[in-house]
Amino acid sequence: MKVCLVYPNLPPVVDGVGEYTCHLAGELAAQGVEVTVISGPVPEGAGKVCPVPGNVRLGRTIHRWGVRGLGRLLRAIRETECDVVALQYTPYAYARCGLGVGVALLPHILRVRLPCKVAVALHEPWIPFQGGPGRMLVAGWQRLATGYMVGACHRVIVTTEKRRRQLQRLMFPMGGNVSVVPVSSNIPVVECDRAAARAHLGVGDGETLFAIFGMSHRHRDYEAVYRCLRTLIAEGHACRLVNIGKIASPGRLQALCRLEKELGLEGYVSWTGFCDAETVSRSLQAADVAVMPERFGISTRQTTLMAALSHALPVVAWRGPETDPVLERSGAIVFVGAGDEEGLTAAMRAAVLDPDVRNSMGARGRELFEEHFSWPRVAGLTLKVLERL
């Protein structure tokens, strides 16, 4: 089978879906698929694009992803002579304003002009209906554009069960055309001197290090974790927190720094900022517990969760409407109802007091990852979906 993966941003551009696309391409190729990746340009001097094995081919570079660039994109896809085109979709990757018309038209044009089948993987198809009038209009447009786009696709892939239900019941009753394929981890496990990694983060002997991994968006309830950490420190527990990942905005950082000062947490909370995959892996291995305060609950669309599980790092997390049954049934994650700060404090306290429980949780998490979310598993599920076209 010949598969063409399409996504504008590949490494070294910082884009989680771009990293996902590279990993998926490499694993599909390892399973015998002829893979071509079509993407946009790389900033000058940024380094090698798409660090995947040599048996993955890079197609023609696309500089425009709007309507005016459709002709070049169509020619690039035709040159691959692929059996299936698999679009990786988030609206802001194809248009900075999130209102991409060209990508919404692309599946319809492909079905008319080329003999290949068309699939789309919806990673983040739309933003929620929140904020001012402009944001509400964008959210509505993105839903209309997604509906128009998937209406021309032979198969739609989503990353969570909730998203599948949304597409089938609320918007696009497409029956068996929607398949769930979870994400995997974009952070390979590297060799690590754990003592040195902990010392680098300022962790003392006997201290428990909690970690939050991911961009500091407002949908992550850092404030709740800070308050829980303050409670544990006030009880006399030796613990601290490291925030691993890119800071969403200066305003967000300033607000959290003010909260640190108000709660007396100065010296107990650190930030790594954006760092490469190797540094992230060492930081995760230095930590004792991952805390995932997603306001809508953790789910199988989060590569940050998969990174923690793959590193055998115990996870304490909010349970919410986004949380998938496979995670709840696993017994590998300590769940607390979203917003329950007393429950979160109790779960974090238990992790501090019992290292054996932490080790057991980490081992179960790693088993869960290997069974359901490893790259061979995710690529295999993707291939099964594409082979049914």
Rank of each mutant, 00 (worst) to 15 (best):
A307D: 03
F210C: 00
L170C: 14
I62H: 08
N243T: 07
L5Q: 09
E27W: 07
L167H: 03
L105D: 02
R349P: 04
V291M: 06
T90F: 04
L232Y: 01
M348P: 06
A30N: 11
L114V: 03
P41I: 14
E223Y: 13
C153H: 04
L263I: 10
V352Y: 10
I233F: 12
R366H: 08
E371I: 07
R68L: 08
W65T: 02
M171N: 10
A379C: 09
I62Q: 07
G297M: 02
A86Y: 13
V56L: 14
V316A: 12
G54P: 04
P115F: 05
E341R: 13
A86T: 13
D83T: 06
V178D: 01
D340W: 11
D15E: 12
S216M: 13
F369M: 07
A234D: 15
L284W: 00
L28Q: 05
T304H: 06
C4K: 03
S310T: 14
V334W: 07
S184Q: 10
V67Y: 03
L229F: 04
N55I: 10
G45P: 01
G32P: 08
L114Q: 07
R165E: 13
T160H: 00
V67C: 06
V315N: 07
G320H: 06
C153A: 15
A286N: 07
H219L: 05
G245E: 01
E161V: 09
C257S: 12
M215G: 09
A224W: 01
S310Y: 11
R78H: 06
